[in-house]
Design a protein around this nucleic acid. Structure first.
Length: 405
DNA sequence: TGTGAACCTGCAAT
DNA sequence: AATTGCAGGTTCA
């Protein structure tokens, strides 16, 4: 077993409204986090294993690293001062990865103010952060996502790391590997191997894209597509250009050259890997949301063609502005089957006293049992503007009829 | 530009 | 028990 060094738990003050790791890590942004020991989220990132727990006031974190120095444990007195820079580095990584700079409560308020649908659906999905993931990892992950489900995508990404990513260490018998580099996926046998590993037709996409990125594009090409503007909390600073900023449009266009990367995957990489907040990935869920709540699916935009795809993105950019992709992700999460129990159930706590009696009725033991009951609730559809118009029209004509009597 | 079929796999619903 | 539908789409004709 490799020699590992486990840090103490540290904590960062953050409320659940500002960050909810349970929602953020399960809503299909990242496919590599594992839930261990009940409530610990764990993932290998940048050469270390990062473990997270959250309560209502803090994010708790610790790292597990390969111990490079030998002998393994320097005297604890000498260690305490040497640990600080590592903690600072991890803290910086967390703040970056979870994109913690923006005031999320303020953003939710802005989006709610301009959009009644967001206001209605967001309250059960607070604390959703758009992750700032490594662009290459996001690219490969979302190439895997085509015509696929989150469970299998996660399994595929796990297999990819297992076979091509460097091993960092184990926690409770779970191996943690870093994400493989593009170079490591350029070998001649990669495509057929990935097919054996269950990637299906995406095996070819990944092999070709890896070669493209590692061999044909210049060094640092993917990173060069990143948004470098500092986050601006003032929403009215300057209007967002039609179709998004120049840098976003450029990044999107460049990504489309890669195999297995269409508009939707390109937008996922732009949003979650390159930091372009106005990027709005339109998938089946978002298309359904657009039809159900934003009157798409008729006339010019009957089916999800490229033109309709762009129209949906433009609509959301007009509505929510520079962080439209973020707002859209909250609605996306609210639409996921994984979280459907939040919408259709209310939790009722029922308390029973259980008594264990002998045949003669003598009580041997008694204990209070708390039962949670998840009760199906009818989700009542509030009539939208159109239905309201019809209702109003109906009652008006009924009044008119009554007058005529 | 817009449409339709084919593409891998696995799990749930019928 | 076999079949169908569907999952954060893309490519090709």
């Amino acid at each position: 077993m490799a020699n590992l060094r486990v840090s103490e738990w540290r904590k960062l003050p953050v409320s659940l409204a500002e960050l909810c790791i349970d929602t953020t890590l399960r809503c299909g942004q990242s496919f590599r986090w594992k839930k261990l020991r009940g409530d610990e989220w764990t993932c290998a990132l940048h050469g270390r294993i990062l473990s997270l727990k959250q309560d209502s006031t803090h994010l708790h974190y610790r790292t597990t690293r390969p111990n490079l120095s030998y002998p393994p444990s320097p005297p604890s007195s000498a260690r305490s001062s040497a640990v600080e820079p590592e903690d600072e580095e991890t803290k910086a990584l967390l703040k970056h990865y979870f994109n913690l700079t923006p005031d999320l409560t303020a953003l939710y308020e802005q989006w709610s103010l301009v959009d009644s649908n967001f206001k209605k659906r967001a309250p059960k999905f607070t604390g959703v952060r758009i992750l700032k993931q490594d662009a290459w990892e996001a690219l490969v992950g979302f190439i895997c996502s085509s015509n696929n489900n989150i469970i299998r995508i996660s399994q595929m990404v796990h297999n990819l790391c297992l076979h091509y990513g460097p091993l960092i260490g184990h926690i409770d018998d779970h191996a943690f590997h870093d994400f493989p580099t593009p170079e490591s996926l350029t070998g001649p046998g990669v495509e057929s191997h990935l097919r054996e590993l269950g990637f299906g037709y995406r095996a070819g996409y990944i092999a070709k894209t890896a070669k493209m990125v590692a061999k044909e594009k210049p060094e640092g090409w993917l990173q060069s597509l990143c948004n470098t503007e500092p986050y601006d909390s003032n929403p009215d600073q300057k209007p967002l250009p039609e179709g998004g900023r120049e840098g976003y449009r450029k990044a999107h266009e460049e990504l489309l050259q890669l195999q297995g990367v269409g508009p939707k995957v390109a937008d996922c990489v732009c949003l979650m890997g390159l930091g372009w907040g106005e990027s709005v990935p339109v998938d089946t869920h978002v298309w359904q949301i657009a039809q159900r709540d934003y009157k798409f699916g008729k006339g010019k935009n009957k089916s999800l063609t490229k033109a309709t795809y762009d129209a949906v993105g433009d609509h959301f950019r007009h509505l929510w502005g520079k962080e439209a992709g973020w707002a859209h992700s909250v609605l996306f999460a609210a639409d996921l089957k994984t979280f459907s129990e939040r919408l259709s159930t209310k939790v009722e706590v029922d308390v029973d006293e259980v008594k264990i009696k002998q045949e003669d009725g003598t009580v041997l033991d008694s204990k209070v049992v708390v039962k949670r009951q998840y009760i199906k609730e009818e989700v009542k559809e509030e009539p939208d503007d159109e239905k309201l118009a019809i209702i109003t029209e109906t009652s008006r004509s009924q009044r008119a009829k009554r007058r005529r009597l």
